[in-house]
Structures are given as C-alpha cells and as structure tokens.
Design a protein around this nucleic acid. Structure first.
Lengths: 210, 210
DNA sequence: GTCTATAATCGGATAGAC
DNA sequence: GTCTATCCGATTATAGAC
C-alpha cells in the first residue's frame, strides 16, 4: 500500500530529473525561444504531449530548470561565506567552487547567463530573492575584512563583480576561449591555470598599502 | 544624373542603419529566435515585407548586426595593441576602451555574448577570423613584456580572459548588478569604480616578484 | 500515464499588383 | 520600393480515447 506509491514517486522523480537535465542542455545551447518542447521530449525519450503532462507549460519547465540551477549553485556556495577563515583561504575556496561549477555544469551557468543578459524577465524575482541577498552578504564580508584591516581598502562590490565575471566566463565564453587556445574543449589544466591567475589577481588586489 | 542615385543611396543607408540599430536592440533583449522580424520592422517603422526587401533573410540581418558590432568594437580596440607604450598605460587604455564599449553599446555586447554562449553556431567563422587573431596578438604582447622583464611571469592568456570577462560583464550582467546595487541602471560612477577596481587587480597581478 | 488527433497561432518567406 | 495577400511549416497547448 505504501510501497507502490513510493516506487512510482521515485520513477516520476527520475523521469522529471531526466527531462530537466535535457532541458538545461537545450536551453543553454539554443535559448528559451530557440528550444522546442518537442526536441526536449525527443531527447529525453518521451512524447511532447507526455512531457506536457509532467510540466504543464514550457515556462513552468523553464522555471524548474532555473530552480535547479540555483539549487545546485547555492548548495556549493552558501557554505563558504560564514566560515571565519582567513580571507585568502576563503577566497581560494570561493573561486575554486565557482570555477568548478563552470566546469562541471557549464549548461547550468549558461542558462542562468542567458536569463540575466535578456534582462531577467522570466526569473528576475527569484534572482532578487535568492541570489542578490547572498551577493550582498559576500560584499559585507569583504567590507568587514577591510574594516578589520585584514585587507586593503578595495571596492568590495566591484571586487565581487570581478570574481563573478572571471569565473562565470569559463562557462559562458568557453566557445571563444577554445578558439583562442586552439583546443576542442577546455581541459582541467585550463581551469587550474585560470584558478591560479584569478587568485593571483584577487590576492594582489587585497594587499594592504605599505 | 549622378545626384539622384547618390541621394537615394544615402536614404537607403540610413534606413538600413535604422533597421540594424533596432535589430541590435531586439536581438540583445530577446535573442535570435525570440525576435520576430515583424517586431523589428514595426519598431523601425516599416512593414515586415519591406524589411525583407532590404535584408532577404533573418539570418542575413543577424549577420549584418554582428558585422556592425565587430566593426565598432574592433575600431575602438585595434589602435591599442601596437602602441609601444608602458604596460600600465596601455592596459589602462585597453580596459577603459572595453568598459566604455560595455557602457555605450550594451546591446552590441550582449548580442555578441549571446552568440558566443550559444556556441557561435551562426557566426563562429567570423569570430575565428576577426576576433581570435586580435586576442592572440594581445596575448603575444603580454608575453613580450614578460620576456622583457617589464612585468612578472603571469599567465598571459588567462590574464586576457580575465580582462575580457570583467569588462564584458558590465554589459552582460548589468541586470544582476543593478539588482545588487539597488539602482535602476548603472551610472557613470559605477563604471569609474569598475575601472579603478579592475586596474588595481590587473596592475597588482603584473608586479614583478621581489 | 500515454497515445492519436487537432486546435490555434505565429513565424519566415514569397508572389504579384502598383 | 512598397503594398496586399497568402503560403507553409513549426510551435505551444488541449481534447479525448485507451
């Protein structure tokens, strides 16, 4: 009596997860309007009509995709800000986590970027609710360090924008980077070198004036 | 005999420029697939059929838009790399020019970013032909400085990626930045602070080891 | 839950008169 | 060059049988 519904629930969750995974990939590659629900369904192995049974509208699926993107990203990042570590250690962990997300979930990064570039019309409220407070908190942490004299008087807001931009671009601009590097795709080595270069820039910028 | 055609040519150029300007705005806000030719035509003050007389297909218009984006951007940037200035001066001019482009032509920046994020399917060849050689040349300039001992041994490729990412993001991620800053749109002051912060990071990273 | 069928609309593109 | 009219494929979404 309780076993069967539980079993079915898991099946359904698995199916929905498959659909969402395929939707992430397609929205990232073709954009929201450029992606046909039928194409997502095909690649996920079910009919368009059946997909629309699980997700009543394309917008609902899209929101669900972005929910998942934020869930994953926030789970990786939230644990960082409240640690009472040294600035250099915390920043390395932060940059490493964000770069790792760009490497492991490039489609997720790109779907988010596409939404923001388009003015966050469909998902701006969630960004304001879930992302912005976190960014503000990070900025406050930086400013706390400055006030405590742990780092030099850098502009905390733009420092965070810079870290975000540099790490994000290894997902969003990978196509251009591979052209410059002459590779088919970015390698682990590229991300290691990115981390080192970004860390060098950030740490150097934080130095206290002599 | 020569006057009339000349006059008409100018009219046509002006009309096409208007169409392209409107197309840039719409492609940036809605993406390629999300933009209807009819909407561009409406906003430019002519009929869809008439627009398709000037630009035979939507793709042709899109390519023309990106041609214009690159023309503008390259004209602003190309003059920088061959100057035999000091690294710090040249980098400030470079970062300033790129930030200025993000500020004055945010739509152009975003159309380009959308194309790259989508894998540069429609315009990759042109990027490979017109952009990549320039980026490689910039990287070579950095490496020349390192070899000459003018700057420390930074990774030139990733340094350029970082500069590109940081400056580009003030167009592409403006929607998120305004949410964080609590402003309706980015101000000149924000770009000044961005320039200062980015310059600080880049210059600090270039310092020779003691 | 899955299938067949279909509604309803929109999009890019063309034909041909003026 | 511009207009009216129209084609035709694709797309989201729904109805209803099984």
């Amino acid at each position: 009596m309780t076993v069967k519904p539980r079993r079915r629930l898991l099946d359904r969750e698995k199916l929905e997860a498959d659909i969402v995974a395929e939707a992430v990939r397609m929205f990232a590659e073709c954009g929201y309007e450029g992606t046909a629900v039928a194409a997502i369904a095909d690649n996920a192995g079910l009919s368009k009509q059946n997909l629309l049974y699980y997700f009543p509208t394309k917008q609902a699926l899209y929101r669900r995709v972005l929910d998942g993107v934020l869930d994953d990203w926030l789970a990786r990042m939230e644990s960082l800000a409240d640690a009472a570590q040294e600035p250099a250690d915390l920043l390395r962990a932060y940059i490493r986590a964000k770069l790792r997300f760009s490497r492991e979930q490039p489609h997720a990064s790109r779907v988010y970027a596409l939404e923001v570039i388009g003015g966050a019309r469909l998902y701006g409220e969630q960004i304001a609710r879930r992302v912005v407070p976190l960014l503000r908190k990070d900025i406050a942490v930086f400013e706390g360090w400055i006030a405590a004299g742990k780092i030099g008087p850098v502009n905390a807001t733009h420092l965070l924008f810079a870290i975000w931009a540099m790490t994000q671009s290894y997902a969003d601009f990978a196509a251009q980077m591979t052209l410059v590097l002459g590779r088919r795709q970015l390698q682990k080595r590229d991300f290691d070198e990115a981390e080192e270069t970004i860390m060098r820039m950030v740490l150097a910028a934080l130095a206290r004036p002599a």
